[in-house]
């Protein structure tokens, strides 16, 4: 029998819908794979099913995972679904199969390969989100809007949103994710939201931000605070890898 590949949108909703559909179809494990539709290379002897994202189905999956396997499992699965790894959905799917058998204890089975993989995916995403919470830098537009830009591997915006909305309730701010062409928008006193952006729109928003005196002050502070006798660029790179530095004020110029 041919292998069956479900192709879905690369968002948590799309992924959860695909899991719902594949589960309902009852395809044997060995023959099923769920992939993200962008950049997928077609193969021979494979049947393709294109999944139409359906919010109701996604909510059903989320709800039954939270209820039957627990919040921790749901949290891990949600974060894993934001990963940039190709096989993430297969891992989530197998994890859920285990989860519905073992119940909430599944998250403690650290020695199991699937649980371990899911844990790693979710940890990688969490770590990247945390690093961007640290390293994202806002510039200011003429209207006083704070604008930042990042180039993450994973879809970390939704994991950063709460932190900054809580921190800056009195600010208008925007964070642009150039990898996934998404924007996080926060208007003073309102709830934040994510929105996909066309490339030219993204660039137009970004060019509004401008350099100013506080950036220079920050650069002088940053240069001064290092102790010459302890210079250690390798340690610096370990903590702040070069790929995060693209839009960090202190590493420019």
């Amino acid at each position: 029998m041919n292998r069956v590949v479900y192709l879905c949108e690369d968002t948590p909703d799309g992924i959860f819908t695909a899991i719902y559909d594949a589960w309902a179809a009852g395809i044997p494990d060995g023959q099923l794979s769920i992939r993200v539709e962008d950049n997928y290379m077609m193969e021979f002897f494979t049947d393709y099913v294109y999944v139409q994202t359906d919010l109701d189905k996604a909510v059903k999956v989320a709800r039954s995972v939270s209820r039957k396997i627990g919040h921790e499992a749901y949290d891990m699965m949600y974060k894993a679904s934001l990963s940039c790894e190709e096989e993430k959905i297969d891992v989530i799917y197998h994890f859920l199969k285990m989860g519905f058998t073992y119940g909430p204890t599944v998250v403690t089975m650290h020695t199991n390969d699937t649980v371990c993989r899911l844990f790693e995916l979710s940890r990688t995403v969490t770590n990247e989100a945390h690093l961007f919470r640290e390293f994202v830098r806002f510039g200011e537009s003429e209207e006083g809007i704070l604008i930042a830009r990042i180039k993450p591997k994973n879809q970390v915006l939704s994991l950063m949103a709460h932190h900054f909305a809580d921190r800056f309730p009195e600010e208008h701010f925007v964070i642009l994710d150039e990898t996934h062409r998404m924007g996080l928008f926060h208007e003073k006193g309102k709830k934040w939201y994510l929105s996909p952006l066309a490339v030219d729109v993204l660039e137009r928003i970004w060019t509004h931000s401008q350099g100013e005196k506080y950036e220079d002050l920050w650069r002088s502070f940053f240069r001064t605070i290092a102790i010459r006798e302890r210079t250690n660029p390798k340690c610096q790179r370990n903590h702040c890898a070069l790929r995060y530095r693209d839009y960090m004020v202190e590493f420019q110029r």
Partner: peptide, 18 residues
């Protein structure tokens, strides 16, 4: 303006790696 996180948040790493 502001909140705090129990784990603490680093924002940059100077040339000495601190």
């Amino acid at each position: 303006t502001g909140n705090t996180a129990a784990c603490g948040i680093c924002h940059s790493f100077s040339a000495d790696g601190r």
